[in-house]
Nucleic acid binder design. Structure first.
Lengths: 243, 243
DNA sequence: CGAGAGCTTGAGGCATCTCAACGGTTGTGG
DNA sequence: CCACAACCGTTGAGATGCCTCAAGCTCTCG
């Protein structure tokens, strides 16, 4: 099952996730499936809600407002799950789609419940991952609510770098980034035009370059300082005491 | 156990939550405890992380940025839980505090894990509640990312009304609201000054009034239309098929 | 070879912020 | 019981960060 591996790398810092839990999870996920770039990932089918493990590639969740504007909620990279909340609650008007070509494994509501019943520890590990996603959502909220455009972009790229590094897709401040500028703008609550100017500003100040689908962070400490970035929330400490 | 009741009202639309689950949950919560207004609720103590059921009163979670500005993440009203994510992940720099005098019941990480092991159905019900919180967080993100000040305030108040109505604290567009203007501003990513002007604008347009700690929504349909509010996410449908 | 999407730049407008000031209320200590 | 501090609510005036409208370039894809 090589397709579990980015998730495993991510969960490696979660103590309750061992070989048994790995097995419990893997047997309940659907078989790996390739989905083309830029296609919707329905968060429900005729049998009920569906969540996805993104085994490879990039995806996103978003909402469309009545006036047609879009808010990107989460960017999913290999090892991430999307739609877990929707398993219990229905997706509401939340949507999901692939960005690149993606390999997914499905997780249905029934499988999820079965997993929870079969292995409390595996369930806790998934909950750990879910809680980490919530931390990112909270950071995202702070980003949009209280930071300037320059800070937002810096913070966004540093977070992405940290997450990709955990799963082996980034090193030394460099990573491939298949996101378009309009998409990033919709994630950060900016217009594509202003994002473009902000990227230019960061480039001329020698902090980071985003060109031709590649991000290069040139001065990580300085960029982190001026963006108010502290990556601790990406490497959550497991609480010491668990029964 | 009268103190469980707002939570029960909220969970009443969750099918997996029956008397047995109620019991499983209640025996694992700490005894009701009264906390004074405007005091911090530590999300961890010497034994590890702690979450809280807000049995009565209002509380909030927030983050403080290096420059001293504050972003309010969630407002908790009776029946809500705060800090559930922190049980698995540690609180990060997320903080929680009471707004009014509050009655809480503690939930420790160990109790939480025990609950999950003892009753899958109770665990699922909590997860249902947790997923609903995530929906609200997503709505909050859209609010701040893609809506104007007027829309944000309208949406915020309509959401609050919907949530309070579910637990019996609002009726006919009226509810007591102990939030100060600076606090609401910090929730919506605005300055207190601009929030004040926005409230005045909504008042003069006959949409809603917030004065002396009471919110009166005068024209709910019109306010909902101009705010892009659709309360469906507050009343999540349970997926039909669960094993 | 045309259409659509993304990237880039310019110019002007406006929503929101910043700075400043004042009155009312509450709580507190002398 | 009074004086004072602290916080909240309110309004004015001016500054600015980000948006809107507009246009041209490049690249990909059909």
């Amino acid at each position: 099952m090589p397709f579990l591996s980015p998730l495993e790398r991510k969960l490696s810092s979660c103590k309750t996730f061992g070989p048994a839990e790995r097995e419990a999870l893997s047997t309940r996920l659907g078989r790996p499936r390739v989905v083309a770039a830029r296609t919707e990932l329905p968060l429900a089918d005729e049998n009920g809600p569906v969540a996805y493990l993104i085994a490879d590639g990039w995806a996103l969740t978003y909402k469309i407002l009545p006036d047609g504007t879009r808010q990107v909620i989460e960017i999913a990279v290999p090892g991430d799950m999307i739609g877990v909340g929707a398993l219990r609650v229905g997706s509401g008007d939340l949507m999901a789609a692939t960005i690149t070509t993606v390999t997914v494994r499905d997780l249905t509501a029934a499988s999820f419940e079965a997993l929870l019943g079969a292995s409390v520890r595996a369930g806790m590990a998934l909950l750990w991952s879910y809680a980490r996603d919530e931390s990112m959502l909270v950071e995202h909220l702070v980003d949009i609510g209280r930071r300037t455009a320059t800070e937002r972009v810096g913070h966004f790229m540093l977070e992405l770098h940290g997450r990709l590094e955990q799963v082996g897709f980034a090193r030394d401040g460099r990573f491939k980034c298949p996101l378009s500028q309009p998409l990033i703008a919709d994630a950060l609550g900016l217009t594509a035009i202003h994002l473009n100017r902000t990227l230019r500003d960061l480039r001329t100040r020698g902090l980071m370059i985003f060109r031709a689908g590649v991000v290069e962070i040139l001065d990580m400490p300085r960029l982190a300082r001026q963006s108010g970035f502290d990556g601790a929330y990406l490497h959550p400490a497991e609480p010491a005491a668990t029964a």
